[in-house]
């Protein structure tokens, strides 16, 4: 009994310690961000591996999610004779929820895990230590550009996801199911609010990008420097990111759309 409580306590302390280290690391990373604007080529390089390499999966997933929304939405709406509202349904679902959330989940799996593995391996092969001894701060030189790149990439990826998804919904709705295209677009425009819906969705994706990149970098930087340790850190990145995205999505949704 005592042992259980003790191990629970130890676990709790461990969690708090990690949280503390995570926040300290974040502070250091943020301190390194301003000087990046003088060496933006470092960020561009990371935008390539973090952002560009995630585009394909975002495009394909976005298109299919939009097409499925079109099909499912149509089947439901047609019972009420409201299939003209398909555009609204597709656009609102994507812009408010699915765009930011699904693209963040994909981003965590595609770019976040890669970041963790890369940083973890750099740690285990003493590359980070080596930099420190060359008087190059790895947090500023390695982590900060990756952080900024993730932060910039996420809202762009989410926007691409939503836009492609709406197009997919339109393809199915208009092309396959024959919903009037004028009604599709005009109803969508009338009911989708630039501020309430689009901007809030963008804010969500910015928050998700921040958190996922932070988790990924911290897990890599804090990984046990062995192949097993890096493997576990990579898994943790994906799992913790997913929790963080879904939990934060609830909080943000409640804050943004809650008090209507």
């Amino acid at each position: 009994m005592i042992d259980t409580i003790r191990s629970l306590g130890r676990w709790g302390l461990g969690v708090f310690e990690r949280l503390g280290r995570g926040h300290l690391l974040l502070l250091e990373i943020l301190r390194g961000v301003p000087e990046l604007f003088l060496r933006f080529s470092l960020v561009i390089q990371q935008l390539s591996s973090v952002g560009v390499h995630s585009v394909l999966i975002i495009l394909i997933s976005g298109l299919f999610v939009g097409m499925v929304l079109g099909l499912q939405g149509y089947n439901t709406l047609v019972d009420f004779g409201a299939e003209e509202s398909l555009g609204v349904l597709v656009a609102l679902s994507l812009v408010r929820e699915l765009g930011p959330v699904v693209s963040a989940l994909l981003f965590a799996g595609r770019a976040g895990s890669a970041l963790t593995a890369e940083i973890g391996l750099m740690k285990s092969t003493e590359q980070l230590s080596g930099m420190e001894m060359m008087a190059v701060d790895p947090v500023r030189r390695v982590l900060a550009p990756r952080f900024l790149a993730g932060f910039i990439s996420m809202p762009l990826l989410a926007a691409i996801f939503s836009a492609v998804g709406i197009f997919g919904g339109f393809l199915v709705g208009h092309g396959l199911l024959g919903v009037d295209d004028g009604a599709f677009w005009s109803q969508m425009q009338a009911k989708t609010d630039w501020y309430e819906d689009v901007l809030n969705g963008v804010i969500k994706s910015i928050v998700f990008g921040f958190v996922v990149t932070w988790i990924a970098l911290f897990e890599g930087y804090d990984a046990t420097p062995t192949s097993e340790g890096v493997g576990r850190a990579t898994t943790r990145t994906v799992v913790h990111s997913a929790f963080a995205i879904l939990g934060l999505d609830f909080v943000l949704t409640a804050l943004m759309f809650g008090d209507v």
Binding site: P155, L156, A159, I160, S162, A163, I166, Q189, T192
Partner: peptide
């Protein structure tokens, strides 16, 4: 990404 944002603003929303 910026074009997508622009589309969301101009074409999809009000």
């Amino acid at each position: 990404g910026l074009v997508a944002l622009f589309v969301l603003a101009m074409k999809v929303s009000n």
